[in-house]
Simulated assay, not measured.
Amino acid sequence: MNEYFFQCPYCWEEISMLIDVSQSLQSYIEDCETCCNPIQITVQAENREILSFQAENIEQ
Rank of each mutant, 00 (worst) to 15 (best):
M1Y: 00
M1L: 08
N2D: 13
N2P: 02
N2F: 02
E3D: 11
E3R: 12
E3G: 08
Y4N: 11
Y4Q: 10
Y4R: 06
Y4F: 15
F5G: 11
F6K: 10
Q7E: 15
Q7T: 15
C8Y: 03
C8D: 07
C8H: 04
P9T: 11
Y10T: 10
Y10W: 05
Y10N: 09
Y10V: 07
C11W: 03
C11R: 01
W12K: 02
W12E: 11
E14A: 02
I15R: 02
I15P: 13
S16I: 04
S16D: 13
S16A: 11
S16P: 12
M17H: 04
L18Y: 00
L18I: 10
L18M: 08
L18K: 09
I19D: 00
I19S: 01
I19Y: 02
D20A: 07
D20C: 10
S22F: 03
S22Q: 07
S22P: 05
S22W: 00
Q23W: 00
Q23Y: 02
Q23N: 10
Q23L: 13
S24E: 11
S24D: 11
S24K: 04
S24G: 00
L25S: 10
L25P: 01
L25H: 10
Q26Y: 01
Q26D: 03
Q26G: 06
S27Q: 12
S27H: 07
S27G: 14
S27C: 10
Y28M: 11
Y28K: 11
I29V: 15
I29E: 11
D31F: 05
D31Q: 11
D31S: 14
C32N: 05
C32G: 07
C32K: 05
C32P: 08
E33G: 14
E33H: 05
E33V: 08
E33W: 00
E33P: 12
T34G: 07
T34P: 04
T34L: 13
C35P: 07
C35K: 07
C35T: 06
C35R: 04
C36F: 04
C36T: 04
N37E: 08
N37M: 15
N37F: 10
N37T: 07
P38H: 01
I39M: 03
I39K: 02
I39Q: 00
Q40Y: 02
Q40P: 03
Q40D: 14
I41G: 03
I41Y: 00
T42S: 13
T42K: 12
T42N: 03
V43G: 12
V43S: 08
Q44C: 13
Q44S: 14
Q44V: 14
A45T: 15
A45Y: 07
E46F: 14
E46H: 11
E46Y: 12
N47D: 03
N47M: 06
R48C: 07
E49I: 13
E49Y: 03
E49G: 01
E49P: 03
I50D: 02
I50E: 01
L51N: 05
L51W: 00
S52R: 05
S52I: 03
S52Y: 01
F53M: 05
F53E: 04
F53I: 06
F53K: 00
F53R: 01
Q54R: 05
A55Y: 05
A55N: 09
E56R: 11
E56G: 09
E56Q: 13
N57M: 08
N57K: 13
N57A: 14
E59T: 14
E59I: 10
E59D: 15
Q60S: 09
